[in-house]
Design a protein around this nucleic acid. Structure first.
Lengths: 165, 165
DNA sequence: TATTGTTATACTCTATAACTATA
DNA sequence: TATAGTTATAGAGTATAACAATA
């Protein structure tokens, strides 16, 4: 009755809407990426992230940051991408333990191949029904949540310590 | 240069924030549900949906609605839940082809077991950093996106027609 | 002929732990 | 001793197509 955690209708509404929207969006995007360039969403994220880096390369660990899952999962995806010639991996000169990941021209080509459809879908599903100020506000609010989550002790994407929880 | 689909920084910001927030939230929630009640997120959604129905039961197809994936996927999850005694399946009297799914007492018990932690996490990760009016606004905006998506010809959760795309 | 649901199957992804090597 | 990354392995989830039964 006085459960402090009992969510208000407004809170539930926001939660459910977030879950359903992100889940539908992700599902549709995954399909598009698969069809257009035979990429999984994670692979696309990795390539896109590399593409956004000025130098076009990083260490594995930095690449994984925020893509949320285990080291072995990253290695697995990197292997697939390397086999397809979309990235290269080479030992880091600075730290001999590290691996530098680079986007290849072929990798950039796949991104180019996939991007138009990706953007079209993004508009069709997500952006079109919203006004510019809605979008700003949405980004603002979710941006704050993101900062909050990033600042929390990592429950999920724990670096390597003893998995709390 | 004049690509009509080129997203503005504000649009990109909203998109990336949505993806990261939902993905971190989902990851954390999945972990909690697994630990607290050995439920996958989908299983939780199915049980919760059944729990919200006044009669406590529906047909498979209606249960799948919005949980976004294939019929066989639903059958798979329903099998797991039935094996654990959390739901029952029985032939529908109205339509002999249909299957009625019901939540059992054990199913309700698992939900009760899992709910407190679920809500706590929801607050900790998602709701706490937001003001009440942010949450209202967020639910409003995402609610509109949701309606928009639902109204679109189903690319992903296509009922059964010839899979477009 | 269309629809409901199941089955068989193959594949992708993820996580855990053990391991190598460098710092 | 801690960190970067890989490997081995095992399990969970998903999709496709073929199928049976009913409408």
């Amino acid at each position: 009755m006085t459960d402090p955690d009992a969510p208000t209708p407004s809170q539930l509404n926001a939660y459910f809407a977030l879950i359903e929207v992100s889940s539908l969006l992700r599902h549709a995007v995954e399909k598009q990426l698969k069809n257009a360039g035979d990429l999984s969403y994670v692979q696309f994220q990795l390539l896109a992230r590399l593409n956004d880096l000025p130098q076009g390369r990083t260490r594995m660990t930095d690449l994984a940051d925020g893509v949320v899952y285990s080291r072995s999962g990253l290695t697995y995806q990197a292997q697939l991408l390397e086999q397809r010639g979309l990235i290269t991996r080479s030992p880091s000169p600075d730290d001999e333990r590290g691996t530098l990941v680079s986007l290849t021209d072929a990798g950039r080509a796949v991104l180019d191949l996939v991007f138009p459809g990706h953007l079209a879908l993004l508009h069709e599903l997500f952006l079109d029904p919203l006004r510019a100020d809605d979008i700003r506000r949405l980004g603002d609010i979710l941006g704050r949540v993101r900062e909050h989550m990033r600042a929390l002790p990592p429950r999920s994407a724990a670096p390597r310590r003893k998995s709390a929880d």
